[in-house]
């Protein structure tokens, strides 16, 4: 019983694959940008003196980290529908992925904040910097530089995990593959192709993050050492 592979039969659907790959990348892009913002807010919130804010952020992070992504996507999808909000599958997917990656970002950023030595803050206070200036220059920017590798891995994971958005019929790469394999009955070939495409997308993202880091962190660029 040999394996018979017929790639040409599947590859004639190449435009569909490409469309799915682009949509996956778009999903990942929006969720990464929004999730980075949300997660940073949540990490800042967890350090808040207000118990209510700190607790709320903690509950958010823990709730997301301890439930499956697919369940979160369904909750957003059906939750929004039940309150009468009719949004596109793409919007729902971005929202759910943002909420998901935001929680992981918050945990990573928190580790980055905790790694700032107390003396850094005293030096900044001693220079009369305001609380906001200290947060930005002395806490946030070095924290991002320090946790950047962990953050970018998380965002690549997010892109891969976005494949479960096929369940709410967002037309991303895995959803496209599902259609194609049911049309062509060439499941193995189809999934081999999207596996390769996912690898390619990961490489594209990693290259993008490398370039961004190159621009954002001149110290690392020049010295090559972790902060």
């Amino acid at each position: 019983m040999g394996i018979e592979l017929d790639f040409p039969a599947v590859l004639e659907r190449w435009p569909n694959f490409l469309g799915g790959a682009i949509l996956t990348l778009e999903l990942a892009f929006f969720a990464t940008v929004l999730g980075a913002f949300l997660g940073t807010l949540a990490a800042v919130g967890r350090r808040s003196h207000s118990l209510l804010i700190a607790r709320t952020c903690k509950v958010y992070v823990e709730a997301i980290r301890n439930t499956p992504l697919l369940v979160q996507i369904f909750l957003v999808y059906f939750g929004l529908a039940s309150i009468g909000l009719k949004l596109s599958a793409f919007t729902v997917a971005v929202a759910a992925l943002t909420i998901n990656v935001g929680a992981y970002t918050a945990e990573i950023m928190r580790a980055g904040f905790d790694a700032i030595p107390r003396g850094q803050l005293e030096a900044a206070e001693g220079l009369a910097l305001s609380r906001l200036q200290i947060y930005w220059h002395i806490i946030l920017l070095p924290a991002v530089e320090r946790v950047y590798p962990a953050l970018t891995s998380q965002f690549v994971l997010l892109m891969l995990a976005s494949s479960v958005c096929s369940q709410i019929s967002a037309e991303e790469l895995t959803a496209v593959a599902n259609y194609i394999q049911s049309d062509t009955y060439r499941a193995f070939e189809t999934y081999i192709i999207i596996a390769v495409l996912y690898i390619f997308l990961s490489l594209v993202m990693r290259a993008g993050f490398w370039g961004l880091g190159f621009v954002l962190f001149p110290r690392r660029r020049r010295l090559g050492t972790p902060l």
Binding site: P117, G119, Q120, A123, A124, H137, L141, P142, E145, F217
Partner: peptide
């Protein structure tokens, strides 16, 4: 007031 600490506390980044 300027203050200088034992551990320098320069901003490493």
């Amino acid at each position: 007031v300027g203050i200088v600490f034992q551990s320098y506390n320069l901003f490493p980044h």
